[in-house]
């Protein structure tokens, strides 16, 4: 086995017109860990995910997945390698029932090659596999919820649906863009064990969060972004103590 980082981001920079969204951001994620990225609103977290997953072209820098250069590849090719992401602004297929939302990822070349999550992806049983995945991610199987139109689902379920789309691809990494935001304390408490289970299943997680308390409970290491620059990185407890972090972020936020 390759003992290097599973995901390596080197000196990524990105500007939108005059706005410098990211400046020289570098970090490494190791297999099986939960890596947190925190930062105030507008600090460039979403832009960073977009650069890594190919949705936005970065101005400079490199991204390596298992040592392979994936910089500038098309989003579907990066997802095809197992580097999956959720969207902060959820993107379900609103006109479809929840379980039908998973047909598209289960139809992808990756899902058909790998068999999808727990052996889905075969013609004919994608509906069943879709419901299995939804059950794993917290949809009550025997309720009506998996059959409800996505447009009628509350935020908590839509966030789970985002995670389910990643799971359908049998991912190596899931990069989550603020799965906790917009959820009540109770809903967050019900998603946290799911995240821990995914980690036990061997999936590497990168979790971008605006809310710190929940993230610090699950993350192994965290990195702090501020105005598009990396402030520091370390264990959650260390980062909390860092003077610059308190100044830049924690001072303005209830922790």
């Amino acid at each position: 086995m390759n003992s290097g980082p599973i995901l390596e981001v080197k000196n990524v920079s990105k500007a939108f017109g005059g706005v410098q969204a990211l400046t020289n951001v570098s970090f490494e994620v190791y297999e099986g860990e939960i890596f947190g990225i925190i930062g105030p609103n507008g600090s460039g977290k979403t832009t960073l995910i977009n650069c890594i997953t190919g949705f936005v072209k970065m101005d400079a820098g490199k991204v390596f997945f298992r040592g392979k250069d994936i910089t500038g590849r098309a989003p579907h090719k990066i997802a095809d390698l197992g580097v999956t992401r959720t969207f902060q602004v959820m993107r379900p297929y609103y006109s479809l029932p929840a379980y039908k939302n998973l047909i598209v990822p289960l139809f992808s070349p990756r899902a058909r090659r790998t068999g999808g999550w727990r052996g889905g992806g075969r013609l004919g049983d994608r509906d069943t596999v879709g419901i299995d995945i939804l059950e794993e991610i917290g949809f009550e199987r025997d309720s009506f919820v998996p059959y409800k139109l996505a447009s009628t689902l509350p935020t908590g379920y839509l966030k789970r649906l985002e995670l389910a789309r990643c799971l359908a691809l049998r991912p190596e990494i899931i990069i989550c863009d603020e799965v906790f935001s917009g959820l009540s304390m109770a809903e967050v408490a019900s998603i946290v064990p799911l995240i821990e289970r995914l980690q036990m299943d061997g999936i590497t997680l990168v979790m971008i969060e605006h809310r710190l308390r929940e993230l610090f409970r699950v993350a192994n290491r965290v990195m702090v972004l501020n105005f598009g620059e990396k402030l520091t990185e370390g264990a959650p407890a260390e980062v909390m103590e860092d003077e610059r972090v308190r100044e830049a972020y924690l001072g303005t936020e209830e922790v």
Partner: peptide, 15 residues
């Protein structure tokens, strides 16, 4: 239909 309504999600699904 995904390509029509939600192309970003289709791309994120590896298609």
């Amino acid at each position: 239909r995904g390509v029509k309504d939600n192309d970003q999600a289709v791309r994120a699904s590896g298609i």
